[in-house]
Design a protein around this nucleic acid. Structure first.
Lengths: 163, 163
DNA sequence: TCGGGTCGTACACTTCAGCGGACAACCACG
DNA sequence: CGTGGTTGTCCGCTGAAGTGTACGACCCGA
């Protein structure tokens, strides 16, 4: 036979992607670098929240890219804690979609931001543009990084990552 | 902080499910037990088809349940060869959906056609319509007869492994 | 100034994923 | 009857996954 069997190069290479994904997840969950817990605290929290084991050292090795070929068990623990589907770690598409939701969910954790969003409902495009410009200016004043536009078309609302 | 963090109980337990999944995949891919290649041949084929490494011994250990905590790399190789999304191995829902498709695809003996069907999983109706049109056009080019809808929809035909 | 805490980093260590190589049993073909 | 190939099964090893413990650096309250 010697059939080449499709030979599509996708799907398999995540190769260190995990570090980037983890970094992003942590940064999204804890946007404030000052308040952000360290690897020790985080690992402890993960252990308590999910019941699965995960050492702080290994968490550090993963996020810094020193280890990358994680087993499904640890991957499950990670995905479980961060509230993302396991596919998040090897499916680019899913990752993008979840990232957008994560960003939104994080923003909405702030009660005032939530209120602001609710109030903004129904405003005209021009007014929203003006508000956006103001917000951007405010971010600059606060020395916050600029946000990239998340995926605009999101009709199917699947499982929400964060409460 | 003090957040209880959702505590969703899903997602993490696959725990030996891999053996069942692999058994089912192999049984579906090679329904005839007489013709079915052994672990050695299968592993060799996987190696050639995906480029990733996988020993026959380990394949046996996985399918027989002796090892279960596979790493993402090997999981990717497996998923790549069998043409299923990696989620197949830890998402019950996806597994059921894919299993149904696998069963249907068993009728098609061509490995590439089977892979195509699996890959099409999850696409929108419009996209599928477009693909169908393209396939029909290709069939005309190859002077193949048009196919009429053969199979009645078997929606609840998602029995597990072989009876 | 001194502890007590947490931070990131770095070793040495244990465990097990994953592989190589062997075994007996089976099925061909001579 | 060999002889050669492939089958499932198994043992033992290597190397990487994953952990424990510790170190210096920093921050904060006393």
């Amino acid at each position: 036979m010697t059939d080449d069997h499709g030979q599509r190069p996708s799907s398999r290479q995540l190769a260190g992607k995990i570090s980037a994904r983890l970094t992003h997840l942590i940064a999204t969950l804890y946007p404030d670098e000052r308040t952000r817990p360290g690897y020790a605290r985080l690992a402890k929290e993960i252990r308590e929240a999910t019941g699965g084991g995960l050492s702080s050292t290994y968490l550090w090795e993963l996020t810094t890219g020193r280890k990358h070929n994680v087993t499904v068990e640890q991957l499950g623990v990670l995905a479980d804690y961060f509230g993302v589907p396991p596919e998040y770690f090897f499916n680019e598409e899913v990752a993008l979609r979840v990232n957008a939701q994560l960003q939104l969910a994080t923003a909405l954790r702030d009660a005032k931001v939530r209120t602001l969003a609710l109030r903004a409902e129904g405003l005209s495009g021009e007014t929203l543009d003006a508000l956006l410009a103001m917000v951007d200016q405010a971010r600059k004043l606060h020395r916050l990084p600029a946000v990239e536009e998340p995926a605009p078309k999101d009709t199917t609302a699947d499982r929400g990552p964060l409460p």
